[in-house]
Design a protein around this nucleic acid. Structure first.
Lengths: 111, 111
DNA sequence: GATGTCTACCTCACATGGTGATGTAGACAG
DNA sequence: CTGTCTACATCACCATGTGAGGTAGACATC
């Protein structure tokens, strides 16, 4: 019923996916994901920040505080080499999973 | 890291996907999903049976005990009209979600 | 100078639901 | 009588998303 559960297991992929194209800070990551998905995925702050912390702890991301000029300070995230490897692995995993779901749910030509 | 979390939110879709092509019992549902996915998805009994119970309670499935000839009795499941509607809705939802993930993680032509 | 609204970060109680182990039982083989 | 396959089921555990709440800076408006 919920689209919510679909997110599980893909949050790291989404974050790494936007960060592999350049350094961004948290709030901006959320915007990028929202934009690129055509507003279909709206990152909740409740999982975004915890997920960023997890990825940093696992060494997939490196972070640094920086002044944002206007407004509050920002925490910028940059993807590491390990993070890029994680992204590639998870991306392949996701593609195969998606393929599998499609295989299972597809209409057989004639049953 | 886990492929495990990817399953969340897709189990109903997988089950309804194989049942829309005909009546099956639980054990058989697991086999079908395994086969159709090229063994990539291996339904654990820990989620399969609870998921079947959920779907039955929600009216998406109708079930009946029947003798299996050889071996223990089997519980056969048949998809209802409501279940078919659920399948169609979730299938569309899934496709859009998958599309979104691909959009977010895709390589931009030139950044 | 108090209120409102952005940006920007963070945390937490709660609920969902998959994982892996374990249990029961029938049928059949060796 | 032990093992293996079918066939169903349940449970403690854990990961993680949801939704709400909190802090704080900057700026506008009245």
């Amino acid at each position: 019923m919920d689209r919510s559960q679909l997110l599980k297991g893909t949050t790291a992929l989404l974050i790494l996916g936007v960060l592999k194209d350049g350094e961004l800070y948290g709030y901006e990551i959320a915007q990028r994901i929202r934009e690129r998905s055509g507003a279909f995925i709206d990152p909740g702050e409740g999982w975004l920040y915890p997920a960023l912390h997890r990825l940093e702890k696992h060494g997939a991301l490196q972070a640094s505080w920086r002044d944002g000029g206007l407004g509050p300070r920002r925490r910028y995230y940059r993807i590491t080499e390990g993070g890029l490897r994680t992204f590639n692995a998870q991306s392949a995993e996701w593609e195969q999973f998606a393929r599998s779901v499609r295989l299972v749910t597809a209409q057989p030509a004639n049953a």
